[in-house]
Design a protein around this nucleic acid. Structure first.
Length: 903
RNA sequence: GCGGCUGUGGUGGAACUGGUAGACACGCGGGUUUUAGGAGCCCGUUCCUGACGGAGUGGGGGUUCGAGUCCCUCCAGCCGCACCA
């Protein structure tokens, strides 16, 4: 080879893209016995119409690099990609343009796929799935049916088939319909009429997890309306969902978000007698110790006892208040600092004091938490304090903040709310057993709870913030729910051998009326007749939420073409948990919680072999672009701003001076950069190297296309170095070069194992710095190419071919090196001499010199510098060695070691 | 308010279990080559000082022979949750 080829990245990348596709280089065979497996997964995307921008592939690049490395390191690697292709945007697009979601989805997928190929993302496309294809959602429906036909056995702590649900004798005696009703009430999938989150703009109801500050993800208003809804009993798993987080290698923030979302709190459910009535009101409290301080009860407006307890003179006011509360959006209801309510005329009896506590309806009480009713203790709860203040209710303290509390007097006078430490006051009168004067309130709480349980007035209970998952959506573009409602009032699921229940084509995607799915229009599809009995029925017309498909897709990748099962059990087991899962943090309480829930159900039912789906989770940081902000804080698009020579930015139209700021990529700011742009300018390898070199995967960063030039420059140097070396390999390579290669292999391997891709790339740069312009052996060049390959796969393949190989570089084994080679290669070492931790000088020593030699040498060096070392206690000289290699790094002389000499 | 995360040069960021702070880059400065260059190559680049030397990882305090790293405390920023009784 005499003529040095030019690094023509476009031609070279096209060549290998094509060759990889033809040779199916990235296809993953199923694992065989004894194979080491590694499952690395990206959160699959919803294929939107806009295609990928440079921010999307941050995580995909990282997993691709890891997957290629692991494969070379001898693992059987599963690294698939698919499409979360059901969802609202496609349906809304269809409403506007009339283009069927299936058509637009296909087009979008084609774009995504082309862009992913462009970047050299080595997915095994043989395993590609899309949630909207019937081959896939057939199994989503299958799983739905498994959940439908299961109940949660609290004693066993696991889900079981509903056939195994013990039926109480009296139900059994009441007949078949009673049994069926009983079973229906226990299923993991059930119907219930309850207030739900209704978004009129989207024409659908939403799950609690999909409502943010009273608005939908898109910012549309959400209100609570009572509707009959399909739910999944995720709350049955609350305890396990919290407990099993412990063992997962996930970011602490995500785990904590889930814990908070589930929101476990221990308390007591207790009932209050209503004065002059047999009715009792259940309340839930975490502070039974404050029972004596209860001066009112507050019921949620939706509470079922409100009607019965409201007195005639309060009826009108109560009804008006309830109507008002019903119309309020979640935002109005939760954000109003002001506590409002209306007395219903009845009063409960405080069991400690015997005094009446008026009952209110108040919308700060949520209907679906605890008992939907609270005991008001204004003295020791800030919300209750605010409420009592507004309506002039008694404020009776039961806890003494203690002598040292500055606010003690005001608390005891009922003018301030106290929620911190303290001891129980003496009871106003009586209340034995429910009052523990002098006891710290935390202890009193337990004592009172014990007492209530013994007397049958209440019992300990754990309440969760988590609500059951509202599972139905009034949409077209989602999985049909395989349920049939029969005219006799019964309900069945579609027989499994009739799956998939395919989505019918319709012409109009608008909801028919409030909370009715557009599927209602597909009359032929909706109406069914039982062929055996002639019974008529209607199909469920709601569809599944977007999260359904993503709840189990990681399982399907293991066996994505299986027509007979969701996944072959042997393959499910062989691949095991996802070893590395990379995606955005925005799914903390949505996808990641739902997927864990389904996985646990499948585990209980024996369909999967692990109790958790994802072993290690990493959230990639957000990639921003930039924009400009003027003095009024308005963000301006980048093309409306000009840069002046003095580094000042000026808004072209107004002449205002503006500042450059980080901003999310968005169409309106005209700051979207696509991978296509970057690849055309610098090539995919440079894009990959730059993106990963920018910083840690988890960190947020700002994109600047010009900066890819740095990675491009590096790759040009790599190209020149390697091609020159291959043209003229040397038989006697210098020691510094071979040492640098050993160090490179060790460092890159360690960095890859820890997902430190930025430092791995800097190691490649360091090696190049040492080896450039030096004689280099063929063996060293080969090893360098293999180490480069995960990062710059296109160039590595080309160089590998030039190096004489006829197979892919990804068939090559990952090079090995050991620490001992490094150590053996070093003859002399520079040791730092410190004085009291401050660097003073360096000495040259053999790396294996013993401590005494180091100490003497350090002392001699200090003497040379004119330091008074006569009284130096050599034992006080601390010699520090590298933990791994045992090499000396530094010698530190304690300043106190001089003190004996009196200096 | 609650919770999580983060504060290191002009910039992005290195520094594994406490052990030479600023690796590797960007930018900037100087030099060189020259085919025009916003190209290549080489050198320099934390701050103060002419130098010796000193200071330095958001502020303050502590532990230690030695602290970016551990502990306490305060400050700032980012993200998530938020009437859950």
């Amino acid at each position: 080879m005499t003529e040095q080829a030019v690094y023509d990245f476009t031609a070279l990348e096209n060549k290998w893209r094509d060759r990889w596709r033809r040779n199916r280089t990235m296809a993953t065979p199923d694992p065989g016995p004894g194979d080491k497996t590694f499952y690395v997964l990206d959160m699959f995307p919803y294929p939107s119409g806009a295609g990928l921008h440079v921010g999307h592939p941050v995580g995909y690049l990282a997993t691709d690099i890891v997957a290629r490395y692991k494969r070379m390191a001898g693992y059987r690697v599963l690294h698939p990609m698919g499409w979360d292709s059901f969802g609202l945007p496609a349906e809304r697009y269809a409403m506007k343009t009339g283009v069927h979601p299936e058509v637009s989805t296909e087009a979008n997928i084609a774009t995504y796929k082309r862009q992913m190929d462009l970047l050299g993302l080595g997915y095994d496309w043989d395993r590609e799935i899309q949630t909207s294809s019937a081959d896939y959602y057939r199994w989503t429906q299958f799983i739905f049916i498994q959940l439908y036909n299961a109940w949660y056995d609290a004693e066993a702590g696991a889900a079981r088939p509903v056939d195994e649900l013990p039926i109480p004798a009296e139900i059994l005696a009441a007949g078949r319909r009673a049994v069926q009703k009983y079973q229906d009430e226990h299923r993991l999938v059930y119907y219930e009429t309850a207030p739900v989150n209704w978004c009129a703009e989207l024409g659908t109801i939403l799950a609690n997890e999909e409502v943010f500050n009273g608005k939908s993800e898109q910012g549309h208003k959400v209100v609570r309306v009572p509707l009959r809804q399909l739910k999944m009993r995720i709350t049955a798993y609350a305890e396990r969902l919290i407990a099993d987080l412990e063992a997962l290698d996930w970011p602490e923030g995500i785990k904590e978000s889930q814990r908070q979302w589930i929101g476990r709190s221990e308390g007591v459910q207790l009932h209050f007698k209503v004065r002059g009535s047999d009715v009792e009101v259940e309340t839930f409290t975490t502070r039974v110790d404050t029972l004596g301080g209860v001066t009112f009860l507050a019921l949620a407006p939706e509470h079922e006892l409100v009607d019965a307890l409201t007195t005639p003179d309060q009826r009108a006011a109560v009804d008006a208040y309830r109507d008002e509360a019903a119309c309020k959006s979640d935002l109005d209801r939760t954000r109003d600092a002001e506590k409002t309510g209306v007395p219903i005329g009845a009063a409960a009896i405080n069991p400690v004091t015997g005094r009446p506590a008026p009952i209110y309806v108040a919308d700060y009480v949520l209907p679906d938490y605890g008992a939907g009713a609270v005991m008001g203790v204004p003295a020791h709860d800030e919300r209750d304090f605010a409420f009592a203040g507004k309506y002039g209710l008694d404020i009776v303290p039961v806890i003494d903040p203690g002598m040292n509390a500055p606010d003690r007097e005001r608390v005891l006078a009922g003018r301030k709310c106290w929620i911190e430490d303290g001891v129980m006051l003496s009871p106003p009168k009586g209340g034995a057993g429910l009052y523990h004067a002098g006891m710290r309130w935390r202890d009193a709480r337990e004592a009172v709870a014990d007492h209530l349980e013994v007397k049958g007035l209440g019992k300990r209970k754990i309440a969760y913030n988590l609500r059951d998952w509202i599972f139905a959506r009034q949409r077209y573009w989602g999985e049909p729910i395989p349920v049939i409602h029969w005219e006799d009032g019964t309900r069945t699921t579609v027989p499994e051998d009739q799956l998939p229940l395919t989505l019918p084509h319709i012409d109009n995607y608008k909801p028919t009326r409030q909370a009715q799915s557009p599927l209602e229009r597909a009359e032929d599809w909706v109406e069914v007749t039982d062929p055996e009995t002639g019974l008529k029925g209607r199909r469920e017309t709601n569809t599944m939420p977007q999260w359904a498909g993503s709840c189990w897709y990681y399982l399907r990748f293991k066996d994505s073409r299986n027509a007979a099962a969701m996944v072959d059990p042997a393959l499910e087991k062989a691949w095991g948990m996802v070893d590395l899962y990379v995606g955005g943090a925005e799914h903390a309480t949505l996808h990641l919680l739902y997927a864990r829930f389904w996985h646990k159900v499948l585990f209980d039912l024996g369909l999967v072999s692990t109790s958790e789906p994802f072993r290690k989770l990493v959230n990639q940081g957000l990639l921003t672009s930039h924009a400009f902000r003027n003095e009024r804080g308005i963000i301006l698009p980048i093309d409306e701003v000009a840069s002046k020579e003095n580094g000042v930015f000026v808004h072209a139209a107004s002449g205002d001076v503006v500042t450059r700021v980080s901003a999310k990529m968005s169409k309106s700011l005209h700051n979207v950069v696509t991978p296509d742009d970057v690849v055309a300018r610098f090539g995919a390898d440079a894009f990959r190297v730059h993106m990963m070199f920018m910083g840690p995967l988890e960190a947020m960063r700002e994109w600047e296309t010009d900066r890819v030039a740095s990675a491009s420059k590096f790759l040009h140097r790599v190209w020149r170095f390697t091609t020159e070396g291959l043209a003229n390999p040397s038989s006697d390579e210098g020691k510094p070069v071979s040492l640098a290669l050993t160090r490179l292999v060790l460092a890159v391997t360690e960095d890859l194992d820890n997902l430190r891709l930025n430092t791995a790339i800097s190691e490649l740069m360091k090696f190049l710095k040492v080896a450039e312009g030096q004689p280099v052996s063929k063996a060293t060049i080969d090893r360098f190419i293999t180490v480069l390959a995960p990062f710059a796969p296109f160039m590595a393949e080309e160089l590998w071919e030039m190096a004489g190989s006829s197979t892919s570089v990804f068939e090559a084994p990952w090079p090995r090196a050991n620490e001992a080679d490094l150590k053996a290669g070093i003859e002399k070492i520079e040791v730092v001499v410190q004085e009291g931790g401050k660097r003073r000088a360096t000495i040259i020593l053999a790396p294996d010199a013993d401590d005494q030699t180091v100490r003497e040498a350090a002392k001699a060096r200090l003497a040379e510098m004119g330091k008074p070392v006569d009284g130096l206690d050599l034992n006080r000289v601390i010699v520090v060695r590298d933990r791994k290699s045992g090499q000396i790094k530094l010698a530190n002389i304690s300043v106190q070691a001089y003190s004996t000499s009196g200096v």
